[in-house]
Design a binder for these strands. Structure first.
Length: 480
RNA sequence: GGCCCUAUCGUCUAGAGGUCUAGGACGCAGCCCUCUCAAGGCUGAAACACGGGUUCGAUUCCCGUUAGGGCUACCA
């Protein structure tokens, strides 16, 4: 029943009270994947009814994050659409229209009994209150009187009249969820100041925007019954629901800054590929039904199905992300890699296209995050940043320096042509004749030329560096 | 506290009553390759939370316990 969709309309509805974290990004991704898979529409709606906590910057950050991931929306901010506006803060009249409907049908009433909350205090819990008092005071007041209050702009919270019994729904990932309506209660839909409340705005907007499948975080599962009551009172057909598990940190607690980067844009600046992020995120709580793990965006779209969603929460795994990044980098051609990586490098590094490509080729298997690429290749484009400990160990304090360094220098000097093949042949011969391991010969070279103990193959590195630079760096430490 | 959700290797997961001596991936360990670091190849350690049922038979179904998570606002 959840596998086939006509005119699928899904949405991502973040509230701009902070950056787009990876949990939200994943929810957005699932919705996007679903829309693309079934030829439906992906709608973006900004839930900024909390005027105190919502900010413009947050909106910008969320849009930027979504753009970076390539999760383009068919309707929403910037692109518009037939159900504008897509910001809840600009839909107040719509909410009031629906509120009026509820009052007229006798399904909502002003709560004249509950005192205003003390400033800065949470209002007292209203579930399980003594209904009888409300029944006498205003719950059973005639709709006309309530409408009058509404017109006057009464300073009372507007509550729905929750019926008794149970509500249930078929969750696409969990099956049936049933709740006793006594646990829902007469929830507030309009605040004392007339502002609409979340559980009311989602219902109104999802209905108004013709959303027919709501896929969201598990933290909303308890809100669903409340929303269902409102759908019923409004005589509206509710959408289907799918609640995906949350992403947890390594301590199984809700993901937070303590677990590393959680702003999706942080991954961009660290140099993760957007397709890696998408691949990684999709696999937390979903699988294609076979053993595939590393998947392209297109593969993800065609493999995605709501049936592949799991119900148990997943823990964020940084080393898996890094592994995915490495694999995606390796299967990518040098051309693509070079292009995607150049924003993370100084302009001087990429100016000489040919040399840049040679360097990238050498480092192809060693690059993970692009933010680390500069360090891996810096010595090709300028003086090495020497690791003093290694300089000491392999060069200045090398016990065999007098014996080996002249030989090393001589062979580099005389290599002609100055190619990896030529250099390798010479060094292998020396190694054999002098009965010295290649490592003994090459580690000092490596430190002198690259500044540290690890690099791509030494012969290839020397070739790309060229004879002049190689010799200059070697002589600095090896000329006795 | 109340209500709701979840429960397979450390982690992501496959498994939809017998195919499970439980499969894959990351990570970890060892070996191979090797001029270092990677990459690659091979091998290994590593899990069905617990207790009751149902059944000829439960990782798979039901109940409970425990654990984790969520919600419990005139926040979203």
């Amino acid at each position: 029943m959840f596998e086939h969709f006509d005119n699928l309309r899904v949405r991502f509805a973040p509230s701009p009270t902070g950056y787009l974290h990876i949990g939200g990004a994943r929810t957005a991704l699932f919705n996007w994947l679903l829309a693309r898979r079934h030829g439906g529409k992906f709608i973006l709606r900004i839930e900024d009814t909390d005027e105190l906590r919502s900010t413009e910057e947050a909106v910008g950050g969320i849009l930027e994050g979504l753009h970076w991931l390539g999760l383009n929306w068919d309707e929403g901010p910037d692109v518009g659409g037939p159900h504008e506006p897509y910001f809840q803060s600009r839909r107040r009249e719509i909410y009031h229209k629906y509120a009026r409907t509820l009052i007229e049908s006798g399904n909502a009433y002003f709560d004249t009994l509950t005192p205003p909350p003390a400033p800065g205090q949470k209002p007292a819990p209203q579930v399980g209150i003594d209904r009888r008092a409300y029944d006498a005071e205003s719950r059973n007041a005639p709709p006309d009187s309530q409408l009058e209050l509404f017109e006057k702009g009464a300073e009372f919270p507007l509550r729905i009249k929750c019926p008794q019994g149970t509500v249930s729904f078929q969750d696409a990932v969990r099956g049936e969820v049933a709740v006793n309506l006594d646990d829902v209660g007469d929830i507030v839909i309009l605040k004392r100041n007339g502002g609409p409340v979340y559980n009311f705005t989602v219902v109104v907007d999802d209905a108004d925007m013709a959303i027919n499948l709501v896929l969201r975080g598990e933290d909303h599962i308890s809100n669903t019954p409340k929303q269902l009551v409102i759908y019923n009172l409004l005589d509206l057909t509710p959408p289907k629901f799918a609640h995906v598990p949350l992403i947890l940190g390594s301590d199984k607690k809700r993901l937070s800054k303590r677990h590393g980067a959680t702003d999706i844009l942080e991954y961009k600046t660290q140099g993760y590929l957007r397709d890696v992020m998408i691949n990684f995120l999709a696999l937390i709580g979903w699988n294609p039904g076979d053993d595939r793990e590393v998947m392209s965006r297109d593969e993800l779209v065609s493999a995605f199905s709501i049936g592949g969603l799991g119900a148990s929460s997943g823990v964020y795994n940084q080393s898996k992300l890094d592994n995915f990044q490495g694999v995606h980098v390796r299967i990518m051609g040098v051309e693509d890699l070079s292009r995607l990586m150049q924003d993370f490098l100084p302009k001087e590094y990429t100016a000489d296209r040919e040399k840049y490509l040679e360097v990238v080729e050498l480092l192809h298997d060693r690059i993970v995050k692009f933010s680390e690429a500069e360090h891996l290749m810096h010595y090709f484009f300028g003086e090495p940043r020497y690791n003093e400990k290694m300089v000491k160990k392999f060069l200045t304090d090398n016990p065999n320096r007098e014996e080996l360094f002249p030989i090393i220098l001589e062979n580099v000097e005389e290599a002609d042509p100055f190619t990896a093949g030529q250099l390798e042949a010479r060094f292998r011969l020396v190694s054999k004749l002098k009965k010295v391991g290649l490592g003994k010969l090459l580690q000092p070279v490596r430190v002198a030329v690259t500044g540290d103990r690890m690099s791509p193959g030494m012969f290839e590195t020397l070739e790309v560096l060229g004879k002049d630079i190689s010799l200059k760096r070697l002589r600095r430490y090896m000329a006795l």
